Simulated assay, not measured.
Amino acid sequence: MLNQDLCTSRKAAELLGVTPRTIQLWADSGILQSWKTPGGHRRFSLSTIENLATEIRSGEVTPSELKSRIEQADEPARGIISADMSASRHEAVPEAAAASGAVKIQVIEDEASLQRLYALTFRHWGLPINLKQASDGYQGLLELGQFDPELLVLDLNLPNIDGFSIIQALEQQGMLDQMHLIVVTALNQDRVQDRVDAVRPGIEVLPKPIPFERIRARVEKILAGR
């Protein structure tokens, strides 16, 4: 590839309308196709990203088509997708969700019934919460870098990209230093805790059914710290 076709993470972020950290997060998780220079810097194909940015802005490419490109790519930087284009379940709880000071919570959970339960319970609390939900790890990672939640509630047994991979990507980007993370899982709690501690000790792993009282306590702690 010619040198003039090289694109840095910062340039890719500018063209696709996201932050450089989001680009790095997507690359670390395997969503973005990229390669590294001998000095360890990520590079993308500038022409590919420019073309894709044009197609996204014009609406010529749908989220499913972008995902297909990622899965079928044979060369670096063929599969870039914008978080703005992902088809998420996004439920805000109620008017206070959009108000200043609302706690931004992202829930990544593949069971639709549990997603509804999260939304209904958070709404019932009457706390200022801005909720974003994703039904699989792929979708959740696309949105996570842009939404930048204060609290992430994460299932582990997810389609496409599992919860362990999400935790590893967050740790690599230093994002676990800036958010609260609660893992809620139906898997063996002790085994999960050991695996999670190997990445970042201290992350709270809780068993299903959903421990809403523990989640509420964490939300109230975030609010009290402001």
Rank of each mutant, 00 (worst) to 15 (best):
L2A: 15
L2R: 15
N3L: 14
N3Q: 13
Q4G: 01
D5C: 12
T8H: 07
S9N: 01
E14C: 08
E14G: 08
L16M: 15
G17A: 05
G17P: 11
T19E: 13
T19I: 10
T19F: 12
P20A: 06
P20C: 09
R21H: 11
R21K: 13
D28P: 00
S29L: 08
I31P: 05
Q33W: 09
Q33S: 14
S34P: 00
S34A: 14
W35D: 09
P38V: 08
R43T: 04
S47Q: 12
S47I: 07
T48V: 05
T48K: 14
T48H: 15
I49T: 12
I49F: 08
N51P: 00
T54L: 12
I56P: 09
R57Y: 02
R57G: 07
G59R: 02
V61L: 15
P63D: 01
P63Y: 03
S64W: 08
K67A: 15
S68Y: 13
R69N: 08
A73R: 12
A77P: 00
I81M: 07
S82H: 05
D84A: 13
R89T: 14
H90L: 13
A96I: 11
A96G: 07
A99L: 12
V107Q: 04
Q115V: 13
L120I: 15
F122T: 06
R123M: 11
H124D: 14
W125C: 01
L127C: 07
L127I: 02
I129R: 07
K132T: 08
G137T: 04
Y138I: 03
Q139P: 01
L141P: 04
L142R: 03
E143L: 13
G145L: 09
D148V: 15
V153D: 00
L156C: 09
L158Y: 05
N160Q: 14
I161T: 08
I161R: 02
D162I: 04
D162V: 10
F164P: 00
A169T: 00
L170T: 11
Q172A: 14
M175G: 02
M179W: 03
V184A: 00
T185G: 02
A186M: 05
L187Y: 08
Q189G: 00
D190C: 03
D194K: 15
D194W: 11
V196P: 02
D197L: 09
A198D: 10
V199H: 01
P201N: 09
G202F: 09
I203Y: 05
V205S: 04
P209V: 06
E213T: 10
E213C: 01
I215V: 09
R216K: 14
A217C: 07
A217L: 12
A217W: 09
K221N: 08
G225M: 08
G225A: 15
G225E: 13
